[in-house]
Design a protein around this nucleic acid. Structure first.
Lengths: 152, 152
DNA sequence: GCCGATTTATAGCCATCGCTATACTTATTG
DNA sequence: CAATAAGTATAGCGATGGCTATAAATCGGC
């Protein structure tokens, strides 16, 4: 079913809801970066006991000042703390977000694999997809995976 | 499997591939907007015989100058043509891209529904997800859907 | 054919997210 | 306990993608 060619809604209403979808996708994008950084900082702390700016930058594939700027934003949003020339740490909110993001990432990868996507591709695509997976879709994914586990 | 806690690769290589995933997600994001505009312009032309800036802006949920700026970028990229105060049209490249994007969108929505996502949610989430679905994942989705059709 | 309404373009602003270059701390080592 | 190395912060730039306000062009009705 094509998005806007085959409904019987009045045009204004069609457009409004389509615009809403784009608006939501834009909003999602704005938090995606925060989610990625928070998850990665959580990973680094779990692995090394601390998260250094240089490590964060390397893993994110950005230059170091770009990471520094992102960390400033995390601090502004109350997700992380840091003192100059010291490591970065997560607040309770940040750690909780990291956990949610990590779990969602795993679920998305598992679902992609479950429907036949090769593992490498699944990992690659999941990085972008996960941020757009709403609560409802995530719940459906989990239900699907649980069902499939039962059947095998 | 957590992304960076449970492999036996040397750390540098782990980081490199994780960085690559983020880099790719960033690149995808850069073309996502173009894809959305091109698909929408295609829809409008199919419906009304032409795509007006005002209609494009309304459907994208942005102000009219924002749409004008995006159209300028489409023209720069060789995807669309327009003359001042006239409608917007797609080049052959633009039309081909619109077709691919539309088909991918349908497939993503269908797959989400097939794994149990409610239709409304599927439409909403697909708008963001679709751009991150690679050729390989798309092929897997199509195979899965074909398989499921056979079994019912 | 002109005049008001509609549509489109332009100007100029803001925030975000990249980057390089450089300054400043901290750590290390002779 | 310097001097150098390494790590982090700051400054400043460019592109992108939003916005509002305003100018310019086109369209419709009289």
């Amino acid at each position: 079913m094509a998005p806007s060619l085959s409904t019987n809604l009045p045009p204004e209403q069609q457009s409004a809801s389509q615009a809403d979808r784009f608006t939501r996708a834009r909003e999602v994008q704005a938090v995606a970066l925060l989610e990625d950084y928070v998850e990665m900082i959580g990973d680094l702390i779990a692995e090394h006991g601390e998260a250094r700016v240089a490590d964060i930058a390397e893993r994110m594939g950005v230059a170091q000042p770009t990471a520094t700027k992102a960390i400033a934003r995390l601090k502004r949003e109350g997700l992380a703390t840091s003192r100059p020339y010291r490591g970065v740490f997560l607040t309770d909110d940040g750690a909780a977000l990291a956990d949610r993001v990590r779990a969602r990432h795993r679920t998305v990868v598992a679902l992609l694999i479950a429907v036949g996507v090769p593992e490498t591709t699944a990992e690659l695509d999941a990085e972008g997809i996960e941020h757009h997976v709403s609560e409802g879709t995530l719940a459906a994914f989990e239900a699907y995976l649980a069902q499939q586990n039962r059947n095998k």
